[in-house]
């Protein structure tokens, strides 16, 4: 088991290094001119770190959500957090809010994401706790509502700028810069720490509330803590670079094939694998038809989905 974890860590580190050196053009780190140095340190480095953080957040929150909601189809966006984030960012842009300078979009997106998370929590709350089915349905309902409102705004607005400004929500890492790393790091790490801390409780919750209760866990309290950790991670990742599909849904499943469904291993493994996959996908998306960039979300799905389908045929899908 230790070897498997080590392999994942090494692969992630290798992908990180590759994503610094490769790109539209390869940079030799031992012979850099001024421009290459600038590209490496102020463009590629923050971009790779943001990609890693987003992937980590999505992988980990997918693993937690699937266990907590006991639903293999759960992914971080099912709670409506991303729709809330994009709606709030669009409203911020329309309102002409440039108060936060180049931080306007991420700040509004994060605010919208947290508010939506809170709203889903309120809707999913009954008899002193959160209920998986209620959370899911509240998330799906709010998600539809917010996407519809966003489409409404876009279809009645004649502001071309607004259309372009909302493109980031479909996954865009090109705006990543150092100033976005600290807050991303803070929220993602806080989320990971919370969920790994409650990983044994997550294991118990997967077996059912009664079982968890008999093992000495308070199911409602554990679910609330896990929900907060997922909310923080997803909000941070959406505000860093919009929505990237596939990772939150399928990376935890792929990791389950390899290391089983013990949350103490599954959460960190899904986090690292998610980070490595997104880093890799972003590397491909900015290099393959350079200088034009592809959305990274397309690449994650094109690499990841066939591999997942292959595993699905080869191995037994168990564990959830």
């Amino acid at each position: 088991m230790k070897i498997k974890i080590l392999v994942i860590v090494l692969i992630t580190a290798a992908v990180m290094c590759l994503s610094l050196v490769l790109g539209p053009r390869t940079i030799n780190p031992f012979a850099m001119d001024k421009t290459s140095r600038e590209i490496l340190f102020s463009i590629r480095a923050p971009r790779s770190i943001v990609a890693l953080l987003m992937g980590v957040a999505l992988g980990a929150s997918g693993a937690v959500l699937q266990g907590m909601l006991r639903n293999p189809l759960a992914d971080p966006y099912i709670l409506g957090i991303s729709s809330g984030a994009s709606l709030s960012a669009a409203l911020g842009i329309i309102g002409g809010a440039s108060v936060f300078g180049s931080f306007t979009v991420p700040v509004f997106a994060f605010g919208g994401a947290v508010a939506t998370g809170g709203l889903v929590g309120v809707m999913g709350w009954e008899r002193g706790g959160l209920w998986p089915e209620r959370l899911l349905l509240a998330g799906v309902g709010l998600s539809f509502l917010f996407s519809a409102l966003l489409m409404l705004i876009l279809s009645i607005s004649t502001d071309e700028g607004l259309r372009r400004a909302t493109l980031w929500i479909f996954g865009d890492l090109s705006m990543s810069e150092w100033s976005r790393v600290p807050y991303g790091l803070f929220f993602v790490m806080a989320g990971i720490a919370l969920s790994v801390w409650r990983a044994t409780a997550l294991n118990a919750l997967m077996l059912g509330d009664e079982f968890a209760h008999s093992l000495g866990f308070a199911p409602q309290r554990e679910r609330l803590i896990l929900f907060i950790s997922v909310g923080l991670m997803t909000a941070a990742s959406v505000s860093l670079g919009g929505m990237i599909g596939f990772i939150g849904l399928l990376v935890p499943h792929i990791m389950r094939f390899f290391i089983g469904s013990d949350g103490r291993l599954l959460i960190p493994a899904s986090a690292l694998a998610g980070g490595a996959l997104l880093c890799m996908a972003d590397l491909i998306s900015r290099s393959v038809i350079a200088p034009t960039e592809l959305p990274a979300g397309i690449v994650t799905a094109i690499i990841g989905a066939p591999y997942f389908l292959y595993l699905l045929r080869r191995k037994n899908v168990l564990g959830i």
Partner: peptide, 9 residues
């Protein structure tokens, strides 16, 4: 959609 790296270069 253009690459910032390429502008620098």
């Amino acid at each position: 959609k253009f690459s910032i790296e390429e502008i620098l270069r």
